[in-house]
Design a protein around this nucleic acid. Structure first.
Lengths: 339, 339
DNA sequence: AACGCTAATCTAAACGTTTCGAACGTGTCA
DNA sequence: TGACACGTTCGAAACGTTTAGATTAGCGTT
């Protein structure tokens, strides 16, 4: 900017004024300055600007795993939304590890991000203090956090699973296996409640041996399913509360020599592009990823626009059961081997 | 830092020296300073640091679509690698649009990223100048760029498709449909060459009506497949050079009332977590995503570590044909309806 | 006792912006 | 004619660091 100012024979203040439109500058000087900018190929240094202004027009986004298709989609939507608003987004993957998350949040804060969108992991960790300090606005994504009172957008997980399990019950299933991730995060907790409530509402017992939990990975789903299928009175249906884990479920079913839906019905959380392409077409609970991403972005953008004092807003969106053909009716005569 | 210095009754220079270990500071002062840091809850401002140092420990990463599973995986690997090295990564999605890409690169450069990893789009656009200016190191990912001479890691696309198509030919297929993305990016171009060469090597004609191109999206794959399947002499196999488009291919096959692999064989580029879970298990060309991501990260980290003058390095990795059961042998008696 | 050496600390100038208030010229009004 | 307001431009301080070079203190030598 100094060079531009010299070349245009004006002060840096004038260049700045022109660039930001913060003061009127005469057509004459404007032209000289613009010419100089072109000649020199000047680009304003956003770092210096950030230092002075105290704002970076950058936000931080952390998710557990970007390869989880739910997060892939949501990240994509959020990225687009902030891109439109002229913000950059720094992406971090916490790998479901609290220490990693804390470190990454610190890293983001060091870099003075203007805001944070967090699909948190473990208990809140450092998050709690950050929200309390209220220096940078935080919106919680997908997962609420006890003791962290801030904007959030989540799914009505309890209801979504309640509906899905009720659907299985209506098909005639009585023993429904349930595979969950570690229950220390709110969605897993709420989904489990939905499962229990659906069984109870139908007057069915909640058999603890039908509930297995794992650590969100394919292999965990595989192991959990193996256990369920080797039960002496094995379930006729399995609901997987987590998308990556259902891959393991399907592989276990195949490896054990069974097939879906003939021998066992399967449904899971989170829709994905392939879910209706192959056989069986998987029945899933689809989250409104577009809406979730946009709402999260909007909540944060609103805070960034200056609306700091409004009380925390919590948005609860509804899932949608995508009924396909991985669950078959039970009880009547066995269905034909249609596949 | 000023407050810390005051509280510890030392100068800011000493605080800085301690924090960076750039000079020895006595145990006495060290302790006072550390105490003050704890008391105040001081965090070093990375922006100010960046301004002074001219480095942000942040890199920019642009990909066309993060929802394309290939890019999802690669982004994930790259993110992890830079995280380990203490770098933050700013992620941008260019949506296969050159203007968007140029804008985002400008945005990243404004923010003084230390380096750039780009899965480029269109012709190089602004990229060319940036590489020539050589202020910030650039590594090309997945896609080379004419006239942009810089580090790159790509797949041997020609060979990968050559192998895949040759496999189809060995199965007895003679009319093999080919669906490609727009051919202005190197992988699409090279893959097409691989297709043609495989046909030629087998003494088969290259029938132009069997080649369809689209814009990388599911719907384009759907339309292309519809066209191929309505040919009077329709292909017995289809190879899709792009992953998202093969979803459209499978849906088109289903919608038209055919089934895979009984009526038509399908193979495609890029493996994904679901490819061997359902029926049919899709035969794919798997890219070594882990290696691609790591190599790209390493190339850039090496430049960032100061190795600026080495000539551009171009890494070419090999794909791997994952043979499953979406392609059936032809010519002999029709296979049983096994699915 | 004076000197030089070393180690520890400090002063002050950058880095590239923004912005406040002052300065300047010009035209208007009493 | 002088005072004043207005529109433009500028000087300089500030943002929070790093760092070169100056300063100081301590200590062994001669």
């Amino acid at each position: 900017m100094l060079h531009v100012a010299e070349a245009a024979r004006v002060s840096v203040a004038t260049v700045s004024a022109l660039l930001n439109g913060t003061a009127t500058v005469s057509p004459e000087l404007s032209q000289r300055i613009e010419q100089a900018i072109r000649d020199i190929g000047y680009k304003r240094n956003a770092i210096a600007r950030s230092l002075k202004m105290g704002t970076t027009r950058t936000i931080g986004l952390t998710v557990p795993h970007i390869t989880n298709p739910f997060f892939t989609d949501v990240v994509s939507v959020i990225q687009q939304a902030f891109d439109r608003a002229g913000y950059a987004v720094m992406l971090c993957c916490t790998d479901e590890d609290l220490n990693t998350q804390d470190e990454q949040i610190r890293l983001l804060l060091d870099r003075m991000v203007d805001g944070l969108i967090v699909a948190r992991v473990g208990d809140g960790g450092i998050l709690k203090r950050i929200v309390e300090d209220a220096n940078v606005p935080v919106v919680l994504l997908d997962r609420l956090c006890e003791g962290v009172d801030t904007d959030a957008v989540v799914l009505d997980n309890r209801r979504a699973v309640f509906d899905a399990v009720t659907y299985l019950i209506h098909l005639g299933h009585r023993r429904i296996g349930y595979i969950t991730g570690t229950s220390d995060i709110s969605p897993m907790h709420d989904r489990m409640i939905g499962y229990r409530e659906a069984l109870q509402a139908a007057g069915l017992p909640v058999a603890e041996e039908l509930v297995r939990s794992g650590n969100f990975h394919e292999i965990d789903g595989y192991n959990a399913t193996m256990q369920l299928l080797s039960l002496h009175d094995r379930p006729s249906a399995i609901f997987s509360a987590n998308n990556p884990m259902v891959i393991g479920t399907m592989k276990a079913i195949r490896d054990i020599g069974l097939s879906c839906p003939e021998d066992i019905s399967v449904a899971c959380f989170d829709d994905f592009p392939w879910s209706d392409v192959f056989v069986p077409q998987l029945t899933t609970v689809a989250q409104p990823v577009q809406a979730i991403g946009e709402q999260a972005a909007n909540l944060l953008l609103d805070r960034l626009a200056g609306n700091r004092d409004a009380p925390p807003r919590k948005l609860v969106l509804k899932g949608r059961l995508m009924i396909r053909n991985s669950c078959r009716p039970l009880g009547a005569v066995a269905q034909s081997v249609s596949a």
